[in-house]
């Protein structure tokens, strides 16, 4: 397995990292360098290793737990807010219940 410039562009898109073309060759080289060290794992026999999750259980909390407080207003940290809404650039298509094709699906 070897990382290609196309892979780096694809992964950068998935991660919403804006990369310049000039950054790509070095990243290809570094990722291949790092992943080369991971190849050792392919030789490990993991057939006997249980895939079931560790014997832990998620704790459950009562429904009535009070809301965690914000000791600072949303306006204090939000980059752009109007009438209580967080603002983003206008989204081009949308469905009535938030399902949108701009960037992904709701739920």
């Amino acid at each position: 397995m070897s990382v290609t410039p196309e892979d780096v562009r694809h992964v950068a898109t998935l991660a919403r990292l804006g990369l310049s073309e000039g950054q790509i060759p070095a990243l290809v080289q570094q990722l291949n360098g790092i992943l080369g060290h991971m190849d050792v794992l392919q030789q490990v026999d993991v057939s006997g290793v249980p895939l079931t999750p560790p014997d832990q259980a998620a704790p459950l909390r009562p429904d009535a737990r009070p809301a965690d407080v914000l000791l600072r207003s949303r306006e204090a940290f939000a980059p752009a807010m109007r009438d209580g809404f967080f603002l983003v650039p206008r989204l081009t298509t949308h469905g009535a219940q938030g399902a949108s094709a701009d960037e992904g699906d709701a739920a």
Partner: peptide, 15 residues
């Protein structure tokens, strides 16, 4: 969107 540094742009992807 909610906090932290933001580079303004005219579309979501660029932001």
């Amino acid at each position: 969107v909610r906090y932290g540094a933001r580079v303004e742009a005219d579309n979501l992807r660029s932001m």
